[in-house]
Write a protein that binds this DNA or RNA. Structure first.
Lengths: 101, 101
DNA sequence: GTAAGCTACTTACTTTTCGTAATCTATAAA
DNA sequence: TTTATAGATTACGAAAAGTAAGTAGCTTAC
């Protein structure tokens, strides 16, 4: 996607947070660290996309991945500081939705 | 897209505002009423998609379409109250972007 | 009177992303 | 050897986005 000349930052933010499922994944992780299956169950998202999104978010430094070498394997995801800083933003969207949808 | 059992409102809001280009179109319209070509020039969006998005936003009551039967024809788009109510939300995303991107 | 120009779309076509379901990896217990 | 579990990957058809050309209605220029 080309960048908006208007506001590159907002453009970049929307490219990231506005991507399908991303905001909902972050919203879910605001509850605390969670495993792959827990997130998958909480949202109507498929494993394929969840895996893809989590990788993107990890790459952006928004989500942290922690592997526990148990049997069976356990993997937890949690928000980094950068990820937590999105709480206000997500809440603001939520509030708007409560008032207007 | 299926609805999130977790938070249907946030889900609905993201479906709307999180759609590609939508937030940027609203951001642009916060400057005041604008014509089709003006929006198209301000953003790296194609006429095809801009037309599609404006229709969606009009249907959701976020944008108002006003036709002036001049020559050549003039069409202006502006935010409704519901649309204006998104200002805080968009600014919040912008602020986050300024701090973290 | 026909050709060209303006604005706001619309259509046809290609590329990218999404959604669903099946499959894979590693480990251990039955 | 088969089964089970968690996390992830792959294959493929469907949907959405991107690109570029075309349309409609009206005006002015030639």
């Amino acid at each position: 996607m080309k960048e908006s000349a208007l506001c590159p930052r907002l453009s970049k933010a929307m490219e990231l947070v506005g991507k399908r499922w991303t905001a909902l994944i972050i919203y879910q992780l605001l509850e605390g660290p969670q495993r792959f299956n827990a997130i998958e169950s909480a949202l109507p998202i498929s494993g394929r996309l969840l895996s893809e999104r989590l990788k993107e978010l990890e790459k952006e430094g928004i989500v942290e991945r922690k592997v526990f070498s148990e049997v069976p394997i356990r993997v937890e995801y949690n928000l980094t500081k950068k990820g937590q800083s999105l709480e206000q933003t997500v809440r603001e969207i939520e509030n708007w939705a409560k008032s207007w949808l």
